[in-house]
C-alpha cells in the first residue's frame, strides 16, 4: 500500500513510465499469486481428503465429519488382510519390469535404424508405426484375444507383457525422436572409426541417449503399472494375476468394504508412483516435452 502511495506521489517525469509499470504490475502479481494459491488448494484438496479418510475409523467415513477422530493406522493394517496387496504389487512389478525390459531390448535398435540408417521403405515403416501408435487398441483386440486364448495364455498377464518383445510403437517413436536430436557427426565419426551399425548404436548413440532411453523406459513402466484395460481383458478371471490397478477397481465391489479402507488402499496405490516420480522428475518432464513438439 505504501509503495503504491509513494509511487503515486512521485513527480519526476522521467521515472513515470517505469513506475507506472511497476504500479500496475504489483496488484497483478498479487492477483496472480492469489489465483494460483486458490487453484493449488483446489488441486490438492482431493489428495488431502483421501489422506484424511484413509486415517479415520471406518465408521466415520460419509458421516459428514471430515477430520479423523481419532487418527488411526487401522485401515492400512486391515488393507493387507482384506486385499492381497502384496500379490497385486508383485504382479504389477512383474508386468511393469518385464514389459519395460522387453520393450527396451526390442525398440532401441529399431528406433536407431529408423533415425540413423537410410534404407528403402524407412518412410513406410515409420508411418506404419505412427498409425499403430495412434489407433485405438480396441480395434484389434478381438482377434488378438482369440489367438491368446487358443495359445492358452488368457487368465495371465503374458498377453500384455510378451508383445513388447516385438517392439512398442509409442516407445519406438519416442526413442527415434530422441536419437534425431543427437548430431549426425557423432555417428559418422564412429563409423569412420570402423564401427558397424551395432557398434555405433551400442558404443556411441545409446550412451549419449541415456536420458531419452530413461524417459521411454519410465513411460513404459508407468503405462504398464497403470494399465487397466489389458488386465481386465486378459486376467480378470484369475485373481492370482491381478495387478494393483485392476485389483483396486474391483475391491469395493468384491468385498463388502468401507470407504476408509478403500481410501487407504487407494493411497497405497498412489504412493509408489509418486515416489518414483520424485526420483526421476527431470527425466520425465524432458521426455514429455519430446513426445511431439520438438521433432
Amino acid at each position: 500500500m505504501s509503495a503504491v502511495l509513494t509511487a503515486g506521489g512521485a513527480t519526476v517525469p522521467t521515472a513515470t513510465s517505469a513506475r507506472r509499470r511497476r504500479r500496475r504490475s504489483l496488484p497483478a502479481v498479487v492477483a496472480e499469486h492469489t489465483g494460483l494459491a486458490v487453484l493449488a488448494v483446489l488441486f490438492m484438496a482431493p489428495v488431502v481428503f483421501v489422506v484424511l479418510t484413509a486415517f479415520m475409523p471406518s465408521s466415520q467415513a460419509l458421516t459428514g465429519s471430515l477430520w479423523p477422530h481419532p487418527w488411526t493406522w487401522e485401515n492400512f493394517a486391515t488393507a493387507f488382510t482384506r486385499a492381497p496387496l502384496a500379490r497385486w504389487f508383485a504382479n504389477s512389478a512383474l508386468y511393469a519390469v518385464l514389459a519395460t525390459g522387453f520393450m527396451l531390448v526390442s525398440s532401441i535398435p529399431g528406433a536407431y535404424a529408423l533415425a540413423r540408417i537410410r534404407f528403402r521403405g524407412a518412410t513406410l515403416v515409420f508411418a506404419a508405426i505412427v498409425v499403430m501408435m495412434l489407433l485405438p487398441p480396441q480395434i484389434t483386440s478381438v482377434p488378438t484375444y482369440i489367438v491368446w486364448a487358443k495359445l492358452g495364455l488368457t487368465g495371465t498377464l503374458w498377453p500384455v507383457i510378451l508383445p513388447n518383445l516385438l517392439g512398442d510403437a509409442f516407445s519406438i517413436f519416442l526413442l527415434r525422436q530422441f536419437f534425431l536430436t543427437i548430431p549426425r557427426d557423432y555417428s559418422d565419426a564412429a563409423r569412420l572409426d570402423g564401427n558397424g551399425e551395432w557398434g555405433v548404436l551400442l558404443r556411441v548413440i545409446a550412451p549419449m541417449a541415456r536420458p531419452g532411453i530413461a524417459a521411454a523406459g519410465l513411460f513404459m513402466f508407468f503405462n504398464s503399472w497403470n494399465d487397466y484395460y489389458g488386465p481386465l481383458l486378459y486376467a480378470s478371471e484369475n485373481p492370482s494375476w491381478w495387478p494393483v490397478a485392476y485389483g483396486l477397481a474391483t475391491f469395493r465391489g468384491m468385498h463388502g468394504t468401507d470407504w476408509s479402507l478403500t481410501m487407504a488402499i487407494t493411497l497405497l496405490v498412489m504412493v509408489p508412483v509418486v515416489v518414483l516420480f520424485f526420483f526421476a522428475q527431470r527425466v520425465f518432464v524432458e521426455g514429455i516435452a519430446l513426445t511431439g513438439i520438438k521433432g
Binding site: 515403416v125 508405426i129 516385438l166 517392439g167 512398442d168
Partner: peptide
C-alpha cells in the same frame, strides 16, 4: 544391419497390427 535391428519391429507390425 537396419533390417536386423528392425526385424522385431517389423514382425510386431505384421503380427500385432
Amino acid at each position: 544391419a537396419a533390417l536386423a535391428m528392425l526385424s522385431p519391429t517389423l514382425a510386431g507390425l505384421v503380427v500385432f497390427f
